[in-house]
Amino acid sequence: MKQLLILFLTFAKVGVMTFGGGYAMLPILQREIVENKGWATEEELADYFAIGQCTPGVIAVNTATFIGRKRYGVAGGIVATLGVVFPSLIIISLLAGVITQFSEIVWVKNAFAGIRVCVCVLIANAVWKLGKKSVIDKWTAGIFLVVAAAAIGTSWSPVVFVLFAGVCGIVLQVLLKKGGAAK
């Protein structure tokens, strides 16, 4: 029980110290999990991270589940995951309430008009970075273009595109041996 509590608190700490996406979490995991606690090796962490990226869900959550499970089985996986999302729950609930209340004040509106421009730039940068890694040949370029056109031009559920792209990937793998082993 005490060990699960330590697991929870350790991952809550990782959650508090992660600003931004999964990549921001890697150096913090390296320090807390590999160096301080010795719960996983550098290589295991890299493996978990790679798989966390290409399995459904938030990378940080996936990595936490992996390490927790390795440490204390299924209960450990669940506890570590709850730990990593716990700070978000508290902080965002407090902030969302405050922001909703203050959203009509003029300077808050002005601030968010500026912030939205920045959000566009940050998302554009994310698309560029992901694109360089995922659009690697004519086939992936084709999937990218088809899905981009359909996602922009229709209101179909994203689930449709995920299933379409997954099937395309498997067919290409079987026919043309595309998609090597994960690195």
Partner: peptide
Amino acid sequence: NGAFYGLRPASTAMILAAL
């Protein structure tokens, strides 16, 4: 590996649509 070979560009395309 094949499924994710197809999924990654699709995921990027969907984020582009959100952008």
